[in-house]
């Protein structure tokens, strides 16, 4: 399996650390309540198909990536930097 890091180019899967669904990006406010936090940390759509999830280029550039890929075919559709998203003004 290979991922294309937006900064480093195509690299072997073993350079990356997988964290989980992009749900981890939507951190609730401190007083959002237990349901919101449960949603954020635990509950998952867990789709058999196209998903967006978070990978860390741990032995590369230390950037966190959002990877769009298919959990059935393992096709990688796109990769982008998490940090770019924030800088572009997307609310975390």
């Amino acid at each position: 399996m290979r991922l294309t890091c937006p900064l480093c180019g195509p690299r072997d899967r073993r350079e990356f650390y997988y964290y989980g669904s992009e749900d981890y990006l939507q951190r609730p406010g401190p007083d959002a309540g237990p349901e919101a936090w449960d949603d954020h940390l635990h509950l998952r759509d867990n789709i058999a198909g196209e998903v967006r999830d978070l990978w860390y280029h741990e032995t590369g550039c230390s950037q966190w990536l959002i990877v769009t890929r298919n959990t059935v075919t393992h096709e990688i559709l796109s990769t982008e930097l998490v940090a770019d998203r924030k800088k572009k003004g997307v609310r975390a």
Partner: peptide
Amino acid sequence: VMRHLDFIHQTHCAD
């Protein structure tokens, strides 16, 4: 911890 800090930085406060 390094990975954790990079995550918080890049996801929550990259700016």
